[in-house]
Design a protein around this nucleic acid. Structure first.
Lengths: 161, 161
DNA sequence: TATATTCCTACAATAATGGTAGGATTTAAA
DNA sequence: TTTAAATCCTACCATTATTGTAGGAATATA
């Protein structure tokens, strides 16, 4: 059971982007140094997030990255899935043909439930939630849906929105 | 995100042990061949399960393994944790000293919640549940608490037991 | 034109996974 | 008492995944 540095770095970088809330693109150099992540490694991570449409990249001098959506509209499962790839704890969950007994495999059902549950937890957190946890006041344009307005126990639904 | 072959093999081996419900110890040779797991590898896995008290090993000729408790009293989280070790998706969850910012780290809280949730799902399944899913009738001595008698949505409580 | 940035691809060190090999030990059965 | 079948123990190893590094190419601003 592991979420690799990719998933963690991506989450932290996105959170920093959200907290900066800059109208100008934020260069990775800034984020890499404040998060103590290798710039080159972070470049690769952010490129894939850009490919997935979670951030907008601006090339050239005074370029950098911007969130593609408001922080309340970006959830952790999107970030983690993008950089980690398949989140199934067992590959047969994603590709049933890997094992001849997939159709009747009891434990496979459990591994699938584990994956669904993990993604449910991650989907329940938006960047806005994380900002709130960091003690930041919510921005005006994301105040419509309060981060903590969702039912606390329903982890399969998105908090916030 | 991965549950390695150790966790999967251990689960399948324990399920087979439960389904055989043999009063005599079941030798690993039997399980290894029916589950198509390398005998030597399975030996190591079962040794650690025995060390954790989940099975009883009987050495010598006509030896083998027995469940240490009724199938309804053994849950998947015990099995998986024993063979996989630390289930935290990020090591700082278990050892906060690995990162100076653990005390104030927002994402760390999420990784911890992910771990708790996964273990909750696994704890909600006993070997008896898996047997029931395999279509086996419940054994008399575990019929008192029906495997599916627990509230369906409460994944943090044990089903059965 | 110089500079700061993202983008792309290849390489590499390290760690984790998934075993194998070879016995030593134990114990029931022949 | 011997033999055989089983667990137990430890070391090794091949493969894969992780976690980067390196070097530049492309892009766009100042």
């Amino acid at each position: 059971m592991n979420i690799s540095t990719k998933g963690r770095y991506a989450s932290r970088a996105m959170l920093e982007l959200a907290m900066r809330n800059s109208p100008e693109p934020v260069p990775l150099k800034t984020i890499a140094s404040s998060q103590r992540i290798s710039l080159k490694y972070l470049e690769r991570i952010m490129t894939s997030l850009a490919g997935e449409g979670l951030v907008i990249s601006v090339r050239g001098k005074s370029g950098g990255y911007l969130l593609a959506r408001p922080a309340a509209k970006i959830t952790l499962d999107e970030i983690v899935k993008t950089v980690e790839g398949d989140m199934a704890p067992v590959s047969c969950v994603t590709d049933a043909s890997l094992c001849g007994r997939s159709a009747v495999c009891v434990t496979r059902d459990i591994w699938r439930e584990v994956e669904d549950t993990v993604l449910g937890v991650l989907r329940s957190y938006s960047l806005a939630h994380l900002m709130a946890r960091e003690g930041f006041a919510r921005q005006p344009d994301e105040s419509r849906d309060a981060p903590d307005s969702a039912p606390a126990l329903d982890t399969n639904k998105q908090r916030g929105e």
